[in-house]
Design a protein around this nucleic acid. Structure first.
Lengths: 165, 165
DNA sequence: TGAAACTTTCAGAAATATTTGAACGTTAGA
DNA sequence: TCTAACGTTCAAATATTTCTGAAAGTTTCA
């Protein structure tokens, strides 16, 4: 496959993947483009390559920096800002897990915790409800802990873990 | 907290969580309601409790059955169909992982695989592209394998794994 | 066979999310 | 200080997703 075709395909696939994950297409595509880029890119460059408006690019670059997976760079003698995405896939995975944990798992654990002190007349309902929410709480906490560990670990740890599985 | 309040809160939270995960709110709320329910519920019951249209309930029940996390039941002497969600949180987690793997991880691995045979004049770009996509391919495959293992394992295995971590 | 009791479908309406582009803000250097 | 070259914001436009409700389809049983 020709490089340019492969690149397009990659960007498109990354965008679709993003949608499945609740990340918007533009954001995922900008990230894909920066992953593939060999040099830092300016907002202008990105607008051009992806045919997006200035506002859209600006907004999504900010979101990507928020996720900690895109960095701003300054080139000497240039007014413009440039952007890069880290090429280390392992670091990327850790950063994404870390953020998803913070944004998605922590809040549900929070709510499940609050639900533990439920009271009511219908003993059966209440008992079943407590069982359910505490089971969910336990499992979420365990998954949470696992992801925390993962997002702080190094690749060696992960490979060793894989062996054990 | 009063039972009915707790129940509402749980359903609402589950709905919000769903949205973060690309699962629509109605679907997540129906699931939450069935999780909490002590008896199988009919479409009518769900419509009433969640104030949703017949079409919406029907559609989302189908989607939940597609995910394998809601089952249809028939009561003797009743024309209506009833629905239940398994109460086993562990089974739920396994089923969700299994489906997400199939729907989201497998397709990206597929695409990454196809991108391996890229060619082009710009040696540097091509080399970096290959490095990136093959790194992504490796990591995805490993995560895929892990999830597969997880979704076939029993709880004991998981607890043992947690110990090792 | 007919009709009541359900379930399913789907076109259009409503709600939500994304994107645009032009106005506004900021900064560096002349 | 002024202005060119950028970055940022946000109201409105567009696109996408979800939801509704009525019509069509199906099943059961009198």
């Amino acid at each position: 496959m020709e490089y340019s075709e492969a690149k397009d395909k990659f960007i498109k696939a990354w965008g679709t993947l993003g949608s499945n994950w609740g990340i918007n297409k533009a954001m995922a595509q900008i990230h894909a483009l920066l992953l593939v880029a060999t040099e830092p890119m300016s907002a202008e460059d990105i607008m051009e390559e992806l045919q997006m408006s200035r506002g859209n690019v600006n907004m999504n670059l900010r979101a990507l920096m928020d996720w900690g997976i895109v960095k701003k760079e300054h080139k000497v003698g240039e007014r413009k800002e440039f952007f890069t995405a880290g090429k280390d896939v392992w670091e990327l995975a850790k950063q994404v897990s870390r953020e998803r944990r913070r944004r998605e798992i922590e809040p549900i654990i929070q709510v499940l915790g609050e639900l533990q002190d439920v009271t009511g007349d219908n003993k059966k309902s209440v008992a079943e409800f407590k069982k359910l929410t505490s089971d969910l709480y336990d499992l979420s906490s365990k998954v949470d802990g696992m992801i925390e560990k993962f997002s702080k670990s190094d690749q060696t740890w992960f490979y060793k873990l894989l062996m054990k599985i």
